[in-house]
């Protein structure tokens, strides 16, 4: 029974990791509190629904289309809101309020077109795999395999190329970054496209076998932020550490208490962590941001 909960926790943790990477890509490079990520998550879910259910495309094709469109939306957010604000030298607080505005707009536009009620993409009962006493459903298998592969690919990418350092360089000093001959705008474009892809992938994997409505984004985003903080800010690999830790701990909380107290455990943990070790499990020691 405990093993089952651990496995469930790891699978949830992989989804948290994807989201945390999506958020951290923007946060680590631009220091923006990217609240629009909540809306981007919901947008991906609805695009997936639109193509898979309304237009009846094969699930895989629908997912790819949804992810592509979501990447576009992520980039659009940057071009339409963040970059102009940055050019006006607006503070991060101002950008955050604008981000909240943008999230409200996207979420409610989606609600206008699709309705506020809960949508389900696929509610058939899937075949499940049994390994000893552990049961894994087909969607969970997808989450484990696809999520795991993407995370592995991302880690290799960050480790083998100079992009990880470049993201950090951009966040530390964008003027100096440009002086070194890099194009800030291109790097930002890349960051936002990639962030959109990660969030959309997590969204598609999650909503495939669960219902969703236009307002789920915020809770998901908060979990992603907690995962990022838990692992440690300033780096990317730590997001995965944090995501999986969070998933397992939440799962254990469900095992030990009940699912009602899952969130309380998460956030008490966050508070304790912030007080004792604000840089997270493996982050750089930095308190002032």
């Amino acid at each position: 029974m405990l093993v089952q909960f651990l496995i469930n926790g790891i699978i949830t943790g992989i989804l948290y990791s994807l989201l945390a990477v999506g958020f951290a890509l923007v946060y680590n490079t631009t220091r923006l509190f990217h609240i629009v990520a909540a809306a981007i998550y919901v947008f991906a879910a609805y695009m997936f629904y639109l193509f898979a259910v309304t237009f009846g495309m094969p699930v895989l094709v629908a997912a790819i289309v949804a992810i592509t469109l979501t990447m576009g939306l992520s980039l659009l957010t940057d071009i339409a809101v963040y970059r102009p604000l940055k050019n006006r030298k607006a503070s991060n607080n101002v950008a955050m309020i604008a981000s909240i505005g943008m999230m409200t707009v996207i979420v409610n536009l989606l609600a206008m077109f699709f309705g506020n009620e809960t949508k389900v993409i696929d509610n058939t009962i899937h075949r499940s795999f049994t390994l000893g006493s552990v049961i894994i459903t087909t969607p969970q298998m997808w989450q484990l395999v696809v999520g795991g592969l993407v995370i592995a690919a991302f880690l290799v990418f960050i480790g083998m190329t100079s992009w990880g350092v470049r993201f950090r360089a951009l966040s530390a000093d964008s003027v100096l970054y440009e002086t070194m001959g890099y194009n800030t705008a291109h790097t930002r474009t890349f960051v936002f496209l990639m962030s959109g892809a990660f969030i959309a992938l997590a969204s598609c994997l999650t909503v495939y076998d669960g219902g969703f409505d236009p307002h789920v984004g915020m809770d998901v985003l908060i979990s992603a932020i907690v995962a990022m903080i838990l692992g440690g800010t300033g780096r990317f690999g730590t997001c995965i550490l944090g995501g999986i830790t969070l998933g397992v701990l939440q799962s254990l909380a469900v095992y030990q208490f009940s699912s009602n107290w899952q969130n309380a455990v998460t956030f008490i943990l966050l508070l304790i962590l912030l007080f004792l070790r604000p840089q997270g499990i493996a982050g750089y020691k930095q308190r002032t941001v």
């Binding site: 220091r31 509190f33 908060i222 932020i225 907690v226 903080i229 009602n260 107290w261 969130n263 309380a264 998460t266 956030f267 008490i268 966050l270 508070l271 912030l274 007080f275 604000p278 308190r287 002032t288 941001v289």
Partner: peptide, 19 residues
């Protein structure tokens, strides 16, 4: 806590109280 960490701390407190 400073800066964003403080924001996150208050966010955590908000969620704990709500839960």
């Amino acid at each position: 806590l400073k800066g964003d960490y403080f924001i996150l701390g208050t966010l955590g407190f908000q969620m704990v109280v709500y839960t």
